[in-house]
Amino acid sequence: MEEKTIYTITIFSENNPGLLNQITTVFTRRQINIETLSVSPSALKGIHKFTITVQTDKPTIEKVVKQIDKRVDILKAYYNNDSELVYQEIALYKLATDKVLALGGIEPLIRKYNARVLEILDNCVVLEKTGLYEETQEMFDELARTTGVLQFIRSGRVAITRGRIERLSDMLASIEKRRQEEQL
């Protein structure tokens, strides 16, 4: 068996309805769980960016990415392993105000985890922390032990490649060049 690791897949697509479905069916067919997923408009108007993390082996990730890339509305799909990426996640924690006060203040916690306070109300406090999965998890574990956590949410991963690989606009330019060549 090939070894499984975390791969981050980056997908640029046209902003058409139904694209997420087209992408997820590729994973479903191969019984691969999507660990995290984040979708947003990219820096270029009309182009969406998907960042997906999955746990699988190299031969599988290669095939899956080709099958995604093959879809008509997908501009480009590629994958990276963690060492090739700078990546981040964000987590929000909702705590009961009285429990926080009973702790005798929140400063040590904020300092320790480099977290931020987003909101303080009579009944609840909302904290924010950006960091790797393990880091947001560690803070969750500590809060769960001390104050209890009323609500918790963690975002999907967002990532940027370390290497100087082609940027989206370069890629679009090369597609445009090919169009001109083909239509000559």
Binding site: S13, V72, D73, R179, E181, E182
Partner: peptide
């Protein structure tokens, strides 16, 4: 239609 930028069916 002779071109779709997200779909390049031919290979140089």
């Amino acid at each position: 239609c002779t071109f779709i930028r997200s779909y390049l069916p031919n290979h140089p």
